[in-house]
């Protein structure tokens, strides 16, 4: 006897969105980075849009699935890079959860994306320092990482704002 799980419409939607962000993450992995740990994180465009349109739970599902699946596809599963991805993903999800609790502070997707990106980098930094490079010299890189997070958060924030606006215009009458 087998157990049948019947996926709901919501499950399908999350799977599609997760697949979309896995695609972005895999393409992005081909872009060379000046410093290990700095990358645009364009897949977060989807996560932020999902957070605004479907809520935190869906965004958490999409992010976690994206991290797991892109780790499997890229062959980094359980590697240090993967652990850092998880650390970053979990910290930005925690930040988003806290933000939901205090009513988003009136932030637009751009502000939310900046906060999430900063939380991502901070969480990653803490884990990197704690697990991999417990050397005080690492702190010299912290402002650099945060600057990158700010810039890329801003960019992906604008992109997800466009995505959300487009989605809302299309669904205004439904």
């Amino acid at each position: 006897m087998s157990i049948r799980l019947s996926p709901s419409l919501e499950d399908h939607r999350i799977a599609k969105l997760a697949a979309l962000s896995v695609g972005i993450a895999v393409i992005e992995a081909a872009i060379p980075s000046p410093l290990p740990g700095i990358k645009p994180g364009l897949a977060n465009i989807i996560a932020i849009a999902v957070y605004f349109l479907l809520g935190w739970r869906a965004a958490a599902w999409v992010s976690i699935l994206r991290i797991l699946v892109s780790g499997l596809i890229l062959g980094t599963f359980l590697s240090p890079g993967f652990i850092l991805s998880v650390a970053g993903g979990v910290s930005s999800l925690i930040a988003l959860a806290l933000l939901s609790h205090i009513g988003k502070l009136g932030l637009s997707p751009v502000g939310v994306a900046i906060l999430a990106a900063l939380a991502h980098s901070l969480g990653q930094f803490v884990v990197a320092y704690w697990l991999f490079v417990p050397h005080p010299g690492l702190f010299y890189l912290l402002p650099v990482f945060l600057t990158a997070a700010l810039v890329f958060g801003l960019i992906s924030g604008f992109l997800s704002q466009m995505l959300i606006t487009k989605y809302r215009v299309q669904h205004e009458f439904s």
């Binding site: 932030l107 637009s108 751009v110 502000g111 900046i114 704002q161 466009m162 606006t165």
Partner: peptide, 17 residues
Amino acid sequence: NSSQPRIGLNRPDQVLL
């Protein structure tokens, strides 16, 4: 959010930035 400008930074965003 629909009352705010659709693309761009709103006031809280600017403060955050």
